[in-house]
Simulated assay, not measured.
Amino acid sequence: MSLSLDQKSQGDIALIWKTFKSINTNVRIRDAANILGYSEAQLLSTSCGESVVRLKPDWENILFSIKSIGTVMVLTQNDSAISKNIGTYPITKYSENVVSTIGDKINLRLIMNNWRMVFAVEENNEETTLRSFQFFDENGTAVHKVYLTKESNAQLFNDIVETYRDEDQRPLQHVEKCENISKGNILPKINISEFEKKWLKLSDIHDFQKFLSKYGISRVQAYNLVKDQLACRVNNNGINKILLLATEKCVPLMFFVQNTGVVQIQSGFIKKVKQIGNWVNVFAHDFNVQINKGDIHSSWIVKKQTDDGIVTSFELYDRNEEKIALIYAKRDENRNIPSKWTNLLNSILPKSVRDK
């Protein structure tokens, strides 16, 4: 159902948003949207005609143009994790509704059938002008943002804006009403022994979600069903220990942060880990991942079979069983998993299920 907004109600949103910003100068627009009960796109659109330009939803050509801008910062987030990466926007490879963009430093999976709107934004502060392209889903939730850096070509940004400027620049945005659908606790009848055997016969990690879908269950539901040797729930403080040990032992990691429209993948050695409030901040040379530890409801060490052997991940979920972040060890050039990764995971696993 569409959430219809007339000019008056949008004017109310603009006033509410302006007042909120004047009082809460350090609150992210995503958090402000949740507090105020509007979508991020609705708040952003109140500045259309000023610092915001609504663009035509020509995803393919806009993304192709962005890669010519030079070095950018890409940002993908969900409610509990933020992934930032600096580099040149990579070449896109289109396959149905999923676009793979793999570059030297930026690795993305774009689920573009869930994209609905895009804005070009210029934010001025005392030091500089921050320019970005921001993409949203049908609920007005941000799925992907691309920010210019000091090395970016600002003139190309302006050219893209003029080329794809939408005729409609009214300061209002229609979005679909967001329905919170509970996954529920009712499980279909499953032969657990058979389920575990089929789990172990998987040869490609990318088939895991399809495997679960056939049974009509979520990842967390599956993890609760199987034996600990396949999926073991661990203490939520494990995230700190894993990250600190990976930094100390120089274990390269891969971070997967996902929302309805994008999966952003970061990989490399961690330089520093710092917790600020609830947020655990992971710093590397070209990327930064932030995880809201307060939102972690369950943490799992999960083993999946592949043609190259067992792949083990450390996975974080919120209380709605939505993914916060998935963490893997980065393979070496021979596709081998560092043995130190096993030692890291053993440090938070019960003795009965530790790998030798």
Rank of each mutant, 00 (worst) to 15 (best):
L244M: 08
D79C: 06
E126R: 10
Q290Y: 07
I86Q: 08
R131P: 01
E126K: 15
C232T: 05
Y38V: 00
M73G: 00
I181L: 15
F283S: 00
Q258N: 12
R28E: 08
T260H: 15
I106E: 07
L75Y: 09
T25F: 08
F283D: 03
F269H: 11
A231N: 08
G294S: 04
P90H: 01
R319S: 09
R331G: 00
C250N: 13
F20T: 00
G268I: 11
R319E: 14
A81C: 09
L187Q: 07
I301M: 04
I324L: 03
W199M: 00
R165A: 08
L212F: 07
R131Q: 12
N61Q: 09
I102D: 04
S267N: 12
R131Y: 12
E123A: 09
Y89R: 00
T76E: 13
L44Q: 13
M254P: 00
L316G: 10
I242S: 04
S182D: 13
L156K: 11
K303S: 15
S9T: 14
G70D: 11
I23D: 04
D286N: 13
A284S: 14
D104M: 01
D159I: 07
D58T: 05
Q221W: 11
N343H: 14
I327L: 06
N124E: 14
D12I: 12
N346M: 02
E123K: 15
P350A: 00
E176F: 08
P57Y: 11
F136G: 00
S68T: 10
R233M: 11
G184R: 15
K145R: 15
L108N: 02
L156E: 10
T88K: 06
S182C: 03
P252H: 11
V72F: 05
S39R: 01
F136W: 03
E127F: 11
A81K: 09
T306N: 02
N139M: 05
V118H: 10
K198C: 02
L344D: 04
S95F: 13
K356A: 03
I242A: 02
F119T: 06
R335Y: 12
D137F: 11
L63W: 12
F208D: 06
Q290K: 15
R165C: 04
T46W: 02
L55K: 04
F119G: 02
A32I: 00
G49P: 06
Q169M: 03
S4P: 00
S347P: 10
V161T: 11
N107Y: 04
Q264D: 07
T25D: 03
I62T: 01
I296P: 08
K201D: 09
S22L: 07
S299R: 04
K198I: 06
Q290G: 05
L326G: 05
W17N: 14
L44E: 12
K201Q: 14
T342I: 14
P188L: 14
D6N: 12
L244H: 09
W199F: 04
I29D: 15
M73C: 13
A14K: 11
E322D: 13
T306D: 05
A246M: 04
D79M: 12
R54D: 03
G11C: 03
